[in-house]
């Protein structure tokens, strides 16, 4: 038990201490944003990493979580915390529907990836055109800084909430990987026919995975809108978040519990550093993301986690 959950608990504890050590708003901003991406990536990793179903449209879930959280507050006066929870539920529902439609018809691999991309794009265009979502002007959540509104004076509070969410998903991922559901996810990823022969209901397993995955990425979207208090179709359903959600786990270590978190943080440290060095060149961080992705796939297909594991093994060998 300690061996399985110890490192995760230690990491969560450390992360929770960060606001005591750092008070600069830019740094806290950076941490919250990186953690939101980490959360979205954790959602992607559950479906893409563990179950092997590569989605190219996790924006559909991120955006649904975000729009639901925002619109329920602005249009229906729902309490922000309740809206946050409902945002997660609605994102999960969208996940189930997309999963049902595509897995039911047996879509796999690149076909599944393309269909998810299409769903996200359709949602983006609808959100951009509809008056209900505020159209191209976007939606503003009213600034009213009170804890019961899920708005806080100090950014530290957001850091803690983000750490709590990422930490909870991290522990849940480890628990899943150690349970029957995790074994079934891996079986589906490795060989669906063999899994069916062993009594695994592959459709049900994939539906559960995409629903849970969508809920987690939806939570990231809802947290995003609560932090920045503004949303438009490009942010919510734009390809940027689909790409971030899949690059982070691939760089961090696909199919591992820590990979998405590690990858998201590394990616954004790298991006910020690039902006500092290259300064004014717009979009330089995106170019570098691409290079980093190519380098990772070519030289470290198991991502940063794979590199760390190899390093760890070499250390223990030297110790002997």
């Amino acid at each position: 038990m300690i061996r399985a959950y110890g490192p995760a608990l230690a990491l969560i504890g450390l992360a929770a201490l960060v606001p005591f050590a750092v008070s600069a708003n830019t740094v806290l901003n950076f941490i919250v944003f990186a953690l939101i991406i980490a959360l979205a990536a954790q959602g992607w990793n559950l479906l893409g990493g563990l179950a092997g179903q590569f989605s190219f449209g996790h924006a559909a879930f991120f955006g649904t979580g975000a729009y639901a959280a925002a619109l329920l507050q602005t249009r229906y006066g729902v309490n922000a915390w309740v809206a946050f929870a409902l945002g997660i539920v609605l994102a999960a529902a969208i996940g189930w529907v997309i999963g049902f439609l595509s897995f039911r018809s047996g879509l796999r691999g690149s076909y599944f990836a393309l269909v998810t991309l299409a769903f996200a794009e359709v949602l983006r265009i609808l959100a951009n055109a509809s008056a209900f979502t505020g159209g191209a002007a976007g939606t503003l959540v009213k600034l009213d800084v009170r804890p019961e509104n899920f708005q806080f004076v100090s950014r530290a509070a957001f850091v803690w909430i983000a750490v709590a969410l990422v930490g909870a998903v991290l522990l849940m991922t480890i628990a899943i990987m150690r349970a029957r559901f995790g074994a079934w996810l891996t079986a589906v990823r490795e060989n669906e026919d063999a899994a069916r022969a062993l009594g695994v209901d592959t459709l049900a397993v994939k539906l559960k995975a995409i629903t849970l995955s969508a809920a987690i990425t939806g939570a990231a979207g809802a947290l995003y809108v609560q932090y920045f208090l503004y949303l438009d179709a490009g942010i919510a359903y734009g390809p940027w978040i689909s790409i971030e959600a899949l690059i982070a786990p691939i760089i961090g270590g696909i199919g591992t519990a820590f990979g998405p978190v590690l990858g998201a943080v590394a990616l954004h440290v790298f991006g910020e550093a690039a902006k500092l060095v290259a300064g004014g060149v717009p979009g330089i961080d995106l170019v570098l993301y691409g290079l980093l992705l190519v380098a990772t796939i070519a030289f470290a297909p198991d991502g940063l986690m794979g590199l760390l594991m190899r390093l760890g093994r070499r250390k223990t060998k030297e110790a002997r």
Partner: peptide
């Protein structure tokens, strides 16, 4: 299966 189908990653 006639052509063995192990879960290669496990």
């Amino acid at each position: 299966f006639q052509i063995v189908q192990p879960f290669a990653g496990l």
